[in-house]
Design a protein around this nucleic acid. Sequence first.
DNA 1: TAGTGGTCTAGACCACTCA
DNA 2: GAGTGGTCTAGACCACTAT
Lengths: 235, 235
Amino acid sequence: MTKYQQIVEYIEKCIKNEIFPKGSAIPSEQELGAMFQCSRMTVRRALDELAAEGVVYKTKGRGTFVSNIAFDRLYSLKGFSQIMREQGIDYSSEVLIFEILNSSKDVAQHLKILQETEVYCLKRVRKAMGKAISIECVYLPVQEFPGLMDYDFAQCSLYETLANVYGVKIERAVQSISTEDIEGEEAKILFGKKKGVALKSVSVGYGKNFKPVEYENALYNGYKYTIDVVIKGEN
Amino acid sequence: MTKYQQIVEYIEKCIKNEIFPKGSAIPSEQELGAMFQCSRMTVRRALDELAAEGVVYKTKGRGTFVSNIAFDRLYSLKGFSQIMREQGIDYSSEVLIFEILNSSKDVAQHLKILQETEVYCLKRVRKAMGKAISIECVYLPVQEFPGLMDYDFAQCSLYETLANVYGVKIERAVQSISTEDIEGEEAKILFGKKKGVALKSVSVGYGKNFKPVEYENALYNGYKYTIDVVIKGEN
DNA sequence: TAGTGGTCTAGACCACTCA
DNA sequence: GAGTGGTCTAGACCACTAT
Protein backbone atom coordinates (compact mmCIF):
# COMPACT_ATOMS: atom_id res chain seq x y z
CA MET A 1 0.00 0.00 0.00
CA THR A 2 1.33 3.39 -0.97
CA LYS A 3 1.91 6.22 1.44
CA TYR A 4 -0.81 8.49 0.08
CA GLN A 5 -3.32 5.65 0.38
CA GLN A 6 -2.35 5.27 4.02
CA ILE A 7 -2.98 8.97 4.55
CA VAL A 8 -6.37 8.71 2.81
CA GLU A 9 -7.32 5.80 5.04
CA TYR A 10 -6.14 7.55 8.17
CA ILE A 11 -8.19 10.65 7.43
CA GLU A 12 -11.27 8.66 6.45
CA LYS A 13 -10.97 6.76 9.73
CA CYS A 14 -10.62 9.95 11.74
CA ILE A 15 -13.70 11.39 10.06
CA LYS A 16 -15.70 8.24 10.66
CA ASN A 17 -14.71 8.21 14.34
CA GLU A 18 -15.44 11.93 14.56
CA ILE A 19 -11.91 12.67 15.64
CA PHE A 20 -12.26 15.16 12.80
CA PRO A 21 -15.91 16.23 13.19
CA LYS A 22 -17.99 17.46 10.27
CA GLY A 23 -17.15 21.02 9.30
CA SER A 24 -13.93 21.08 11.29
CA ALA A 25 -10.48 21.71 9.91
CA ILE A 26 -8.18 18.74 9.51
CA PRO A 27 -4.44 19.10 10.16
CA SER A 28 -2.60 21.29 7.66
CA GLU A 29 -0.57 19.76 4.85
CA GLN A 30 2.64 20.52 6.70
CA GLU A 31 1.42 18.87 9.88
CA LEU A 32 0.28 15.77 8.04
CA GLY A 33 3.64 15.62 6.29
CA ALA A 34 5.36 15.65 9.68
CA MET A 35 2.96 13.03 11.07
CA PHE A 36 3.57 10.62 8.20
CA GLN A 37 7.22 11.51 7.66
CA CYS A 38 6.64 12.40 4.05
CA SER A 39 6.80 15.37 1.74
CA ARG A 40 4.00 17.83 1.26
CA MET A 41 3.36 16.63 -2.31
CA THR A 42 2.46 13.18 -1.03
CA VAL A 43 0.03 14.67 1.48
CA ARG A 44 -1.52 16.77 -1.29
CA ARG A 45 -2.00 13.71 -3.44
CA ALA A 46 -4.06 12.17 -0.64
CA LEU A 47 -6.06 15.32 0.12
CA ASP A 48 -6.82 15.95 -3.55
CA GLU A 49 -8.27 12.47 -3.78
CA LEU A 50 -10.48 13.05 -0.75
CA ALA A 51 -11.54 16.43 -2.11
CA ALA A 52 -12.49 14.88 -5.47
CA GLU A 53 -14.68 12.39 -3.65
CA GLY A 54 -16.30 15.19 -1.69
CA VAL A 55 -15.08 13.91 1.67
CA VAL A 56 -13.25 17.17 2.38
CA TYR A 57 -13.06 20.59 0.77
CA LYS A 58 -10.14 22.96 0.60
CA THR A 59 -10.12 26.74 0.87
CA LYS A 60 -7.02 28.64 -0.10
CA GLY A 61 -5.48 30.47 2.82
CA ARG A 62 -7.78 28.84 5.37
CA GLY A 63 -7.32 25.12 5.39
CA THR A 64 -8.96 21.79 4.61
CA PHE A 65 -12.31 20.96 6.15
CA VAL A 66 -14.50 17.91 6.59
CA SER A 67 -17.57 18.06 4.34
CA ASN A 68 -20.96 18.22 5.93
CA ILE A 69 -22.38 15.63 3.60
CA ALA A 70 -21.06 12.17 3.00
CA PHE A 71 -21.64 11.09 -0.57
CA ASP A 72 -21.28 7.50 -1.53
CA ARG A 73 -17.91 6.94 -3.09
CA LEU A 74 -19.47 5.72 -6.29
CA TYR A 75 -23.15 6.13 -6.17
CA SER A 76 -24.22 3.96 -8.98
CA LEU A 77 -22.06 1.78 -11.23
CA LYS A 78 -22.54 -0.95 -8.74
CA GLY A 79 -25.03 -3.26 -10.29
CA PHE A 80 -28.20 -4.51 -8.74
CA SER A 81 -26.68 -7.26 -6.60
CA GLN A 82 -24.15 -5.05 -4.90
CA ILE A 83 -26.63 -2.30 -4.11
CA MET A 84 -29.12 -4.74 -2.64
CA ARG A 85 -26.48 -6.54 -0.63
CA GLU A 86 -25.12 -3.31 0.80
CA GLN A 87 -28.54 -2.24 1.90
CA GLY A 88 -29.25 -5.63 3.34
CA ILE A 89 -32.27 -6.17 1.14
CA ASP A 90 -33.41 -9.68 0.30
CA TYR A 91 -33.18 -9.92 -3.47
CA SER A 92 -33.38 -12.41 -6.30
CA SER A 93 -33.19 -12.56 -10.07
CA GLU A 94 -35.12 -14.61 -12.58
CA VAL A 95 -33.64 -15.25 -16.02
CA LEU A 96 -36.24 -14.83 -18.76
CA ILE A 97 -33.88 -15.06 -21.72
CA PHE A 98 -30.21 -15.91 -22.07
CA GLU A 99 -29.12 -16.53 -25.62
CA ILE A 100 -26.73 -15.57 -28.39
CA LEU A 101 -28.17 -13.65 -31.31
CA ASN A 102 -27.05 -11.41 -34.13
CA SER A 103 -27.06 -7.81 -33.04
CA SER A 104 -29.73 -5.47 -34.28
CA LYS A 105 -28.80 -2.05 -35.62
CA ASP A 106 -29.72 -0.42 -32.34
CA VAL A 107 -27.57 -2.74 -30.23
CA ALA A 108 -24.67 -2.61 -32.70
CA GLN A 109 -24.63 1.18 -32.69
CA HIS A 110 -24.54 1.44 -28.94
CA LEU A 111 -21.82 -1.19 -28.56
CA LYS A 112 -19.90 0.23 -31.52
CA ILE A 113 -19.72 -3.11 -33.27
CA LEU A 114 -20.81 -4.24 -36.74
CA GLN A 115 -24.44 -5.12 -37.22
CA GLU A 116 -25.12 -8.87 -37.17
CA THR A 117 -22.12 -9.47 -34.87
CA GLU A 118 -22.95 -12.06 -32.24
CA VAL A 119 -24.07 -10.69 -28.89
CA TYR A 120 -25.36 -12.20 -25.69
CA CYS A 121 -28.84 -11.17 -24.71
CA LEU A 122 -29.59 -11.57 -21.01
CA LYS A 123 -33.05 -10.60 -19.86
CA ARG A 124 -33.82 -10.79 -16.18
CA VAL A 125 -36.51 -9.85 -13.72
CA ARG A 126 -35.07 -8.22 -10.62
CA LYS A 127 -36.88 -8.76 -7.39
CA ALA A 128 -36.51 -7.26 -3.95
CA MET A 129 -38.34 -8.81 -1.05
CA GLY A 130 -40.10 -11.05 -3.52
CA LYS A 131 -41.57 -8.23 -5.57
CA ALA A 132 -40.55 -7.38 -9.12
CA ILE A 133 -38.67 -4.09 -9.30
CA SER A 134 -37.37 -4.13 -12.82
CA ILE A 135 -37.05 -5.99 -16.08
CA GLU A 136 -33.54 -5.65 -17.36
CA CYS A 137 -32.14 -6.65 -20.73
CA VAL A 138 -28.37 -6.55 -21.23
CA TYR A 139 -26.42 -7.00 -24.45
CA LEU A 140 -22.72 -7.89 -24.54
CA PRO A 141 -20.41 -8.77 -27.46
CA VAL A 142 -19.74 -12.53 -27.52
CA GLN A 143 -16.18 -12.01 -28.73
CA GLU A 144 -15.15 -10.14 -25.59
CA PHE A 145 -16.66 -12.63 -23.17
CA PRO A 146 -16.28 -16.21 -24.43
CA GLY A 147 -17.96 -18.81 -22.26
CA LEU A 148 -20.35 -16.44 -20.53
CA MET A 149 -23.19 -18.93 -21.05
CA ASP A 150 -21.58 -21.21 -18.46
CA TYR A 151 -22.75 -18.96 -15.67
CA ASP A 152 -26.15 -18.91 -14.08
CA PHE A 153 -27.13 -15.29 -13.77
CA ALA A 154 -30.06 -16.05 -11.58
CA GLN A 155 -27.34 -16.59 -8.97
CA CYS A 156 -24.28 -14.72 -10.24
CA SER A 157 -23.88 -10.97 -10.46
CA LEU A 158 -23.12 -9.97 -14.04
CA TYR A 159 -20.90 -7.06 -12.99
CA GLU A 160 -18.93 -9.23 -10.62
CA THR A 161 -18.51 -11.97 -13.22
CA LEU A 162 -17.23 -9.48 -15.79
CA ALA A 163 -14.76 -8.12 -13.24
CA ASN A 164 -13.57 -11.36 -11.65
CA VAL A 165 -13.56 -13.70 -14.64
CA TYR A 166 -12.78 -11.37 -17.55
CA GLY A 167 -11.02 -8.56 -15.69
CA VAL A 168 -13.38 -5.99 -17.20
CA LYS A 169 -14.63 -3.24 -14.94
CA ILE A 170 -17.26 -0.70 -15.92
CA GLU A 171 -15.50 2.63 -15.45
CA ARG A 172 -18.15 4.95 -16.75
CA ALA A 173 -21.73 4.78 -17.95
CA VAL A 174 -24.14 7.01 -19.79
CA GLN A 175 -27.76 6.61 -18.85
CA SER A 176 -30.92 8.09 -20.34
CA ILE A 177 -34.11 8.00 -18.32
CA SER A 178 -37.63 8.43 -19.66
CA THR A 179 -41.10 6.97 -19.31
CA GLU A 180 -42.69 4.30 -21.48
CA ASP A 181 -46.13 2.77 -21.82
CA ILE A 182 -45.94 -0.96 -21.39
CA GLU A 183 -48.48 -3.75 -21.62
CA GLY A 184 -48.75 -7.52 -21.85
CA GLU A 185 -46.23 -9.69 -20.04
CA GLU A 186 -44.01 -6.83 -18.92
CA ALA A 187 -46.89 -4.84 -17.43
CA LYS A 188 -48.05 -7.92 -15.63
CA ILE A 189 -44.64 -8.55 -14.10
CA LEU A 190 -43.99 -4.98 -13.00
CA PHE A 191 -47.46 -3.79 -12.07
CA GLY A 192 -49.67 -6.87 -11.96
CA LYS A 193 -51.88 -5.09 -14.47
CA LYS A 194 -52.50 -5.18 -18.20
CA LYS A 195 -51.08 -1.74 -18.82
CA GLY A 196 -48.82 0.68 -17.03
CA VAL A 197 -46.25 3.45 -17.33
CA ALA A 198 -42.74 2.35 -16.55
CA LEU A 199 -39.56 4.24 -15.78
CA LYS A 200 -37.27 3.40 -18.68
CA SER A 201 -33.49 3.44 -18.47
CA VAL A 202 -31.22 2.98 -21.45
CA SER A 203 -27.54 2.86 -20.63
CA VAL A 204 -24.17 2.00 -22.06
CA GLY A 205 -21.32 0.93 -19.80
CA TYR A 206 -17.73 1.65 -20.82
CA GLY A 207 -14.56 -0.16 -19.77
CA LYS A 208 -10.97 0.88 -19.17
CA ASN A 209 -10.19 2.03 -22.69
CA PHE A 210 -13.64 3.61 -22.90
CA LYS A 211 -14.77 0.84 -25.19
CA PRO A 212 -18.47 -0.02 -24.85
CA VAL A 213 -18.86 -3.14 -22.73
CA GLU A 214 -22.58 -3.52 -22.22
CA TYR A 215 -25.77 -2.01 -23.52
CA GLU A 216 -28.67 -2.18 -21.14
CA ASN A 217 -32.34 -1.56 -21.48
CA ALA A 218 -34.31 -1.60 -18.26
CA LEU A 219 -37.89 -0.97 -17.19
CA TYR A 220 -38.63 -0.07 -13.59
CA ASN A 221 -41.72 0.21 -11.53
CA GLY A 222 -41.17 3.90 -10.88
CA TYR A 223 -43.75 4.00 -8.13
CA LYS A 224 -41.77 1.62 -5.97
CA TYR A 225 -38.26 2.29 -7.13
CA THR A 226 -36.24 5.43 -7.76
CA ILE A 227 -33.05 5.85 -9.73
CA ASP A 228 -30.56 7.77 -7.62
CA VAL A 229 -27.72 9.69 -9.13
CA VAL A 230 -24.89 11.87 -7.88
CA ILE A 231 -23.89 14.55 -10.34
CA LYS A 232 -20.49 16.10 -9.96
CA GLY A 233 -19.30 19.42 -11.29
CA GLU A 234 -15.87 20.34 -12.56
CA ASN A 235 -12.61 19.71 -10.65
CA MET B 1 -3.19 30.83 -16.55
CA THR B 2 -1.10 28.14 -14.93
CA LYS B 3 1.29 25.92 -16.79
CA TYR B 4 -0.67 22.73 -16.31
CA GLN B 5 -3.79 24.42 -17.64
CA GLN B 6 -1.84 25.39 -20.75
CA ILE B 7 -0.82 21.77 -21.20
CA VAL B 8 -4.43 20.63 -20.76
CA GLU B 9 -5.58 23.12 -23.38
CA TYR B 10 -2.84 22.15 -25.78
CA ILE B 11 -3.68 18.46 -25.58
CA GLU B 12 -7.41 19.09 -25.85
CA LYS B 13 -6.75 21.17 -28.95
CA CYS B 14 -4.57 18.49 -30.50
CA ILE B 15 -7.26 15.89 -29.87
CA LYS B 16 -9.94 18.10 -31.34
CA ASN B 17 -7.84 18.74 -34.46
CA GLU B 18 -7.01 15.05 -34.65
CA ILE B 19 -3.32 15.76 -34.40
CA PHE B 20 -3.66 13.11 -31.69
CA PRO B 21 -6.27 10.78 -33.22
CA LYS B 22 -8.61 8.67 -31.11
CA GLY B 23 -6.91 5.63 -29.68
CA SER B 24 -3.40 6.92 -30.44
CA ALA B 25 -0.67 7.55 -27.91
CA ILE B 26 0.05 11.14 -26.95
CA PRO B 27 3.65 12.23 -26.26
CA SER B 28 5.18 10.72 -23.12
CA GLU B 29 5.38 12.70 -19.91
CA GLN B 30 9.08 13.33 -20.49
CA GLU B 31 8.51 14.61 -24.00
CA LEU B 32 5.73 16.95 -22.88
CA GLY B 33 7.97 18.23 -20.10
CA ALA B 34 10.62 19.07 -22.68
CA MET B 35 8.06 20.70 -24.99
CA PHE B 36 6.70 22.96 -22.25
CA GLN B 37 9.98 23.47 -20.43
CA CYS B 38 8.56 22.18 -17.20
CA SER B 39 9.03 19.33 -14.76
CA ARG B 40 7.39 15.98 -15.12
CA MET B 41 5.16 16.59 -12.07
CA THR B 42 3.53 19.52 -13.82
CA VAL B 43 2.84 17.41 -16.89
CA ARG B 44 1.36 14.71 -14.70
CA ARG B 45 -0.95 17.21 -13.05
CA ALA B 46 -2.32 18.06 -16.49
CA LEU B 47 -2.63 14.45 -17.67
CA ASP B 48 -4.30 13.33 -14.45
CA GLU B 49 -6.93 15.99 -14.99
CA LEU B 50 -7.57 14.83 -18.54
CA ALA B 51 -7.70 11.21 -17.40
CA ALA B 52 -10.22 12.07 -14.68
CA GLU B 53 -12.43 13.67 -17.30
CA GLY B 54 -12.12 10.61 -19.49
CA VAL B 55 -10.39 12.47 -22.32
CA VAL B 56 -7.35 10.19 -22.13
CA TYR B 57 -6.47 6.99 -20.31
CA LYS B 58 -3.12 5.85 -19.01
CA THR B 59 -1.59 2.40 -18.96
CA LYS B 60 1.46 1.72 -16.87
CA GLY B 61 4.49 0.82 -18.93
CA ARG B 62 2.77 1.65 -22.23
CA GLY B 63 1.76 5.27 -22.34
CA THR B 64 -1.16 7.68 -22.41
CA PHE B 65 -3.83 7.29 -25.07
CA VAL B 66 -6.69 9.32 -26.45
CA SER B 67 -10.06 7.89 -25.38
CA ASN B 68 -12.38 6.60 -28.03
CA ILE B 69 -15.38 8.34 -26.57
CA ALA B 70 -15.74 12.01 -25.79
CA PHE B 71 -17.88 12.59 -22.74
CA ASP B 72 -19.22 15.97 -21.96
CA ARG B 73 -17.07 17.65 -19.36
CA LEU B 74 -20.00 18.11 -17.03
CA TYR B 75 -23.01 16.37 -18.32
CA SER B 76 -25.66 17.77 -16.15
CA LEU B 77 -25.31 20.44 -13.45
CA LYS B 78 -25.90 22.95 -16.15
CA GLY B 79 -29.43 24.06 -15.64
CA PHE B 80 -32.14 24.20 -18.25
CA SER B 81 -31.09 27.46 -19.92
CA GLN B 82 -27.52 26.42 -20.55
CA ILE B 83 -28.44 23.01 -21.94
CA MET B 84 -31.01 24.49 -24.30
CA ARG B 85 -28.68 27.25 -25.44
CA GLU B 86 -25.85 24.82 -26.12
CA GLN B 87 -28.10 22.66 -28.23
CA GLY B 88 -29.47 25.66 -30.04
CA ILE B 89 -33.02 24.94 -28.98
CA ASP B 90 -35.55 27.75 -28.79
CA TYR B 91 -36.68 27.82 -25.18
CA SER B 92 -38.69 29.87 -22.73
CA SER B 93 -39.84 29.82 -19.14
CA GLU B 94 -43.07 30.89 -17.54
CA VAL B 95 -43.16 31.78 -13.86
CA LEU B 96 -46.18 30.27 -12.10
CA ILE B 97 -45.18 31.15 -8.56
CA PHE B 98 -42.40 33.26 -7.07
CA GLU B 99 -42.86 33.99 -3.40
CA ILE B 100 -41.34 33.78 0.04
CA LEU B 101 -42.85 31.28 2.44
CA ASN B 102 -42.00 29.44 5.61
CA SER B 103 -40.34 26.15 4.81
CA SER B 104 -42.24 22.93 5.24
CA LYS B 105 -40.65 20.01 7.02
CA ASP B 106 -39.76 18.36 3.73
CA VAL B 107 -38.04 21.44 2.32
CA ALA B 108 -36.28 22.20 5.60
CA GLN B 109 -34.87 18.71 5.85
CA HIS B 110 -33.45 18.73 2.37
CA LEU B 111 -31.91 22.19 2.75
CA LYS B 112 -30.70 21.36 6.26
CA ILE B 113 -32.34 24.43 7.75
CA LEU B 114 -34.83 24.85 10.57
CA GLN B 115 -38.47 24.32 9.77
CA GLU B 116 -40.42 27.58 9.27
CA THR B 117 -37.27 29.35 8.06
CA GLU B 118 -38.04 31.63 5.13
CA VAL B 119 -37.42 30.16 1.70
CA TYR B 120 -38.03 31.31 -1.82
CA CYS B 121 -40.37 29.15 -3.84
CA LEU B 122 -39.93 29.49 -7.58
CA LYS B 123 -42.22 27.42 -9.74
CA ARG B 124 -41.74 27.56 -13.48
CA VAL B 125 -42.93 25.88 -16.63
CA ARG B 126 -40.05 25.08 -18.96
CA LYS B 127 -40.78 25.13 -22.64
CA ALA B 128 -38.77 24.09 -25.66
CA MET B 129 -39.99 25.09 -29.09
CA GLY B 130 -43.17 26.35 -27.48
CA LYS B 131 -44.10 23.07 -25.85
CA ALA B 132 -44.06 22.42 -22.12
CA ILE B 133 -41.29 20.03 -21.13
CA SER B 134 -41.31 20.30 -17.39
CA ILE B 135 -42.79 21.93 -14.34
CA GLU B 136 -40.03 22.80 -11.96
CA CYS B 137 -40.28 24.02 -8.39
CA VAL B 138 -37.12 25.26 -6.68
CA TYR B 139 -36.68 26.18 -3.01
CA LEU B 140 -33.78 28.34 -1.75
CA PRO B 141 -33.06 29.79 1.69
CA VAL B 142 -33.85 33.54 1.72
CA GLN B 143 -30.97 34.26 4.07
CA GLU B 144 -28.37 33.10 1.59
CA PHE B 145 -29.78 35.03 -1.35
CA PRO B 146 -31.17 38.40 -0.25
CA GLY B 147 -32.85 40.36 -3.02
CA LEU B 148 -33.50 37.41 -5.29
CA MET B 149 -37.04 38.64 -5.89
CA ASP B 150 -35.61 41.52 -7.93
CA TYR B 151 -34.89 39.17 -10.81
CA ASP B 152 -37.32 38.01 -13.44
CA PHE B 153 -36.75 34.31 -13.83
CA ALA B 154 -38.86 34.10 -16.91
CA GLN B 155 -35.81 35.75 -18.51
CA CYS B 156 -32.90 35.04 -16.18
CA SER B 157 -31.26 31.68 -15.60
CA LEU B 158 -31.43 30.80 -11.91
CA TYR B 159 -28.10 28.97 -11.98
CA GLU B 160 -26.36 31.85 -13.69
CA THR B 161 -27.85 34.38 -11.28
CA LEU B 162 -26.69 32.38 -8.29
CA ALA B 163 -23.21 32.16 -9.77
CA ASN B 164 -22.81 35.71 -11.07
CA VAL B 165 -24.67 37.69 -8.40
CA TYR B 166 -24.09 35.62 -5.28
CA GLY B 167 -20.93 33.78 -6.26
CA VAL B 168 -22.53 30.42 -5.47
CA LYS B 169 -21.87 27.56 -7.83
CA ILE B 170 -23.57 24.18 -7.62
CA GLU B 171 -20.70 21.75 -7.26
CA ARG B 172 -22.58 18.55 -6.75
CA ALA B 173 -26.15 17.34 -6.83
CA VAL B 174 -28.04 14.27 -5.77
CA GLN B 175 -31.03 13.39 -7.86
CA SER B 176 -33.74 10.78 -7.41
CA ILE B 177 -35.89 9.84 -10.37
CA SER B 178 -39.23 8.08 -10.26
CA THR B 179 -42.68 8.21 -11.83
CA GLU B 180 -45.74 9.96 -10.48
CA ASP B 181 -49.40 10.11 -11.40
CA ILE B 182 -50.46 13.68 -11.98
CA GLU B 183 -53.75 15.34 -12.77
CA GLY B 184 -55.43 18.74 -12.88
CA GLU B 185 -53.43 21.80 -13.88
CA GLU B 186 -50.09 19.99 -14.02
CA ALA B 187 -51.38 17.21 -16.25
CA LYS B 188 -52.93 19.78 -18.52
CA ILE B 189 -49.69 21.69 -18.88
CA LEU B 190 -47.46 18.67 -19.47
CA PHE B 191 -49.73 16.37 -21.42
CA GLY B 192 -52.74 18.45 -22.44
CA LYS B 193 -54.86 15.84 -20.70
CA LYS B 194 -56.66 15.44 -17.40
CA LYS B 195 -54.37 12.71 -16.15
CA GLY B 196 -50.94 11.39 -16.94
CA VAL B 197 -47.79 9.75 -15.62
CA ALA B 198 -44.85 12.09 -15.25
CA LEU B 199 -41.15 11.54 -14.81
CA LYS B 200 -40.42 12.95 -11.37
CA SER B 201 -37.05 14.30 -10.32
CA VAL B 202 -36.22 15.35 -6.80
CA SER B 203 -32.79 16.84 -6.38
CA VAL B 204 -30.64 18.77 -3.96
CA GLY B 205 -27.80 20.95 -5.21
CA TYR B 206 -24.77 21.50 -3.01
CA GLY B 207 -22.32 24.39 -3.05
CA LYS B 208 -18.61 24.73 -2.34
CA ASN B 209 -18.70 23.73 1.29
CA PHE B 210 -21.20 21.01 0.45
CA LYS B 211 -23.93 23.04 2.04
CA PRO B 212 -27.36 22.54 0.42
CA VAL B 213 -28.11 25.44 -1.90
CA GLU B 214 -31.31 24.47 -3.63
CA TYR B 215 -33.98 21.83 -3.37
CA GLU B 216 -35.77 21.09 -6.57
CA ASN B 217 -38.86 19.16 -7.42
CA ALA B 218 -39.52 18.69 -11.11
CA LEU B 219 -42.08 16.90 -13.25
CA TYR B 220 -41.19 16.03 -16.84
CA ASN B 221 -43.10 14.77 -19.78
CA GLY B 222 -41.05 11.59 -19.95
CA TYR B 223 -42.34 10.74 -23.39
CA LYS B 224 -40.76 13.83 -24.92
CA TYR B 225 -37.84 14.40 -22.63
CA THR B 226 -35.16 12.17 -21.18
CA ILE B 227 -32.87 12.80 -18.25
CA ASP B 228 -29.31 12.03 -19.28
CA VAL B 229 -26.64 11.18 -16.81
CA VAL B 230 -22.97 10.26 -16.88
CA ILE B 231 -21.95 7.98 -14.07
CA LYS B 232 -18.29 7.78 -13.19
CA GLY B 233 -16.47 5.05 -11.35
CA GLU B 234 -13.55 5.35 -8.99
CA ASN B 235 -10.31 7.23 -9.74
C1' DT C 1 17.09 -3.47 -22.54
C1' DA C 2 14.84 0.86 -23.28
C1' DG C 3 10.90 3.43 -22.44
C1' DT C 4 6.76 4.27 -19.92
C1' DG C 5 3.85 5.68 -16.11
C1' DG C 6 3.49 5.41 -10.53
C1' DT C 7 5.34 7.10 -6.49
C1' DC C 8 8.05 10.19 -3.75
C1' DT C 9 11.44 13.82 -2.03
C1' DA C 10 12.97 18.38 -0.22
C1' DG C 11 12.98 22.18 -1.25
C1' DA C 12 10.82 26.98 -3.44
C1' DC C 13 7.70 31.18 -4.29
C1' DC C 14 3.04 32.88 -4.53
C1' DA C 15 -1.77 34.54 -3.17
C1' DC C 16 -4.83 34.24 0.13
C1' DT C 17 -7.06 34.49 5.01
C1' DC C 18 -7.16 35.90 9.56
C1' DA C 19 -5.92 37.94 13.78
C1' DG D 1 2.80 38.82 9.97
C1' DA D 2 2.03 33.98 10.55
C1' DG D 3 -0.16 30.20 8.52
C1' DT D 4 -2.56 28.03 4.71
C1' DG D 5 -3.27 25.92 0.29
C1' DG D 6 -1.78 26.45 -5.11
C1' DT D 7 1.86 25.89 -8.13
C1' DC D 8 6.30 24.25 -9.57
C1' DT D 9 11.17 22.27 -9.76
C1' DA D 10 14.82 18.75 -10.61
C1' DG D 11 15.88 15.16 -9.39
C1' DA D 12 15.10 9.77 -7.73
C1' DC D 13 13.68 4.68 -7.67
C1' DC D 14 10.23 1.32 -8.92
C1' DA D 15 7.14 -1.90 -11.67
C1' DC D 16 5.46 -2.65 -15.86
C1' DT D 17 5.38 -3.23 -21.21
C1' DA D 18 7.44 -3.97 -25.32
C1' DT D 19 11.01 -5.68 -28.43
